[in-house]
C-alpha cells in the first residue's frame, strides 16, 4: 500500500525520433562505418599530409617579410573590391525588395508567391564562385562580372530574409489598414515596413560586410578586385606580395566586421 509499488518493475525511456532504440543504434553504427570507409577511399594518406606541412613551412618562410612596395597595385585592388562590395549590395537589395515582398505568402497571391519563391530557390542553388565563373565567361575578366555575381548573391539572400520576416510579422496592423481603405503600397509602407525595417537594416549591413569578404575572393576566378591581384601573385610565386595582400584583406575584413557589429548594436 505505497505509492512506490505503483510504478515498480516498470521501465521508461524517453522516446526517440527514430521510432525504436534498435533503429537508433543501427543508424549511428552505419554513420561510423561510412566515415571509416570514406577516409580509406579518399586516399587520406598520412605521408602526403606530412609532405604538405613541410611545403607549407617553405611557403610561409618565403612570405616573410610581406612586401608592401607595390602599394598602388595593392591599393587599387582593395578599392576595387570595396567598390564591388558596395555597388553589388545596393543593386542586390534594390532587386531583392520587390521580389521579397512577392515571396511573402501572407501578402502575395499564390501564383506570384510561387514564382518569386522559385526565383529565390534558383538563386540559392549555386555557390557564388560558380556564378562568378559563369559571369566571367559571359562578360570577360574584370569587376563587371564581380558586381553581377555579388548582386545576384545579395539578391537571393536578402529577398529570402525579407520574405521570411514579412511572413512572421503580425498581420493585425495589415488587416486594420486594409479596413481603412488603404491601398497596397500604403499597407506595405505603414503596416509592413515598420515591422520589418530594423531587422532588415541589420541584414543589409551584414550583407555588405559579407560582400566585402566575398569580393576579395571572387577575383581568384577573374572577377576583379584584390582577389585577382592575389591570384596573380600566387601563380607567379610572389609569396611576399601575396602575404601583403592577405594581411590587407584581413585588416579590411576585420574593419568591416567591427563596423557592422557596431551599427547593428546601435540599431537595437
Amino acid at each position: 500500500m505505497s505509492d512506490t509499488a505503483f510504478g515498480a518493475g516498470r521501465r521508461w525511456r524517453p522516446p526517440t525520433i527514430f521510432g525504436s532504440h534498435k533503429l537508433r543504434a543501427a543508424f549511428f553504427l552505419a554513420v561510423a562505418v561510412y566515415l571509416v570507409w570514406s577516409l580509406g577511399t579518399l586516399q587520406f594518406d598520412s605521408q602526403r599530409v606530412l609532405r604538405g606541412f613541410v611545403r607549407a613551412g617553405d611557403i610561409f618562410a618565403r612570405m616573410w617579410p610581406p612586401d608592401f612596395s607595390r602599394s598602388t597595385l595593392l591599393i587599387n585592388g582593395m578599392l576595387e573590391s570595396i567598390q564591388i562590395a558596395i555597388v553589388s549590395t545596393v543593386l542586390g537589395v534594390l532587386i531583392a525588395v520587390p521580389i521579397g515582398v512577392c515571396a511573402a505568402r501572407n501578402l502575395a497571391p499564390r501564383p506570384i508567391y510561387l514564382a518569386a519563391r522559385g526565383l529565390i530557390v534558383i538563386g540559392r542553388t549555386f555557390h557564388e564562385l560558380i556564378i562568378a565563373i559563369f559571369f566571367v565567361k559571359m562578360f570577360g575578366f574584370g569587376p563587371l562580372a564581380g558586381v553581377l555575381t555579388l548582386s545576384y548573391g545579395s539578391f537571393s539572400f536578402v529577398a529570402k530574409m525579407l520574405a521570411e520576416d514579412i511572413e512572421n510579422m503580425n498581420m493585425g496592423p495589415v488587416e486594420a489598414l486594409r479596413a481603412t481603405g488603404a491601398g497596397f503600397r500604403q499597407v506595405i509602407w505603414f503596416a509592413v515596413l515598420p515591422q520589418v525595417l530594423v531587422r532588415q537594416i541589420g541584414i543589409l549591413i551584414y550583407r555588405l560586410d559579407s560582400n566585402l569578404r566575398h569580393s576579395t575572393i571572387i577575383g581568384v576566378v577573374g572577377a576583379g578586385g584584390i582577389g585577382q591581384t592575389l591570384s596573380a601573385a600566387f601563380s607567379k610565386y610572389d609569396f611576399d606580395f601575396a602575404s601583403a595582400i592577405l594581411i590587407s584583406i584581413a585588416v579590411l575584413v576585420a574593419m568591416g566586421e567591427f563596423g557592422s557589429d557596431y551599427i547593428r548594436r546601435r540599431l537595437r
Binding site: 493585425g172 488587416e175 505603414f190 503596416a191 515598420p194
Partner: peptide, 12 residues
C-alpha cells in the same frame, strides 16, 4: 473598424 488586439502599428 476596431479590433480585439487593437492592431496598431507598434513602432509608430
Amino acid at each position: 473598424m476596431i479590433f480585439q488586439e487593437y492592431n496598431l502599428v507598434e513602432r509608430l
